[in-house]
């Protein structure tokens, strides 16, 4: 087994773990973390593809690396936005559940920020 295959297998394992975590955990924070694990798996896979596609005299193919950095920035902003929403949800309702209102009566704090 060569290095690129090993990295590829690790990436598939990460993606699989992420999808499992996303589907089985009801808590939003864990779902966000699971999405980040899927993202890491995809980035690792892209890294393995770059490693495999190395041209003459180069350590690896530079195009995927340039795209990876953009991808990491996008994933970071997505996580930040999701966490900000989660924090505001906790401030407004006092719970972090994704269940609908019937199961989880709204508990509006007086003076919650508009």
């Amino acid at each position: 087994m060569n290095t690129a295959t090993l990295f590829g297998l690790c990436a598939s394992a990460l993606i699989g773990m992420g999808v499992y975590g996303l589907l089985t955990n009801p808590q939003p924070l864990r779902k966000i973390i699971a999405l980040n694990i899927i993202g890491s798996g995809i980035f690792l896979l892209f890294g393995a593809i770059a490693y495999r596609g190395a041209g003459a005299g180069m350590g690896s193919d530079p195009v995927p690396q340039a795209l990876l950095i953009t991808g990491i920035v996008v994933a970071f902003s997505a996580t930040a936005l999701a966490i900000a929403l989660l924090l505001r949800l906790y401030e407004v309702t006092g719970s972090v559940s994704l269940a609908s209102d019937e199961a989880n009566p709204p508990d509006h704090k007086p003076g919650a920020p508009e």
């Binding site: 939003p28 779902k31 966000i32 999405l35 999701a82 949800l89 407004v92 309702t93 209102d101 709204p106």
Partner: peptide, 21 residues
């Protein structure tokens, strides 16, 4: 900015992120 809007937005972003990944 009500509780149910925030919940809907959070559910939306989880679906959308999985989709784009």
């Amino acid at each position: 900015g009500r509780g149910e809007n925030l919940r809907a937005a959070l559910r939306y972003i989880l679906f959308a992120l999985l989709g784009s990944l």
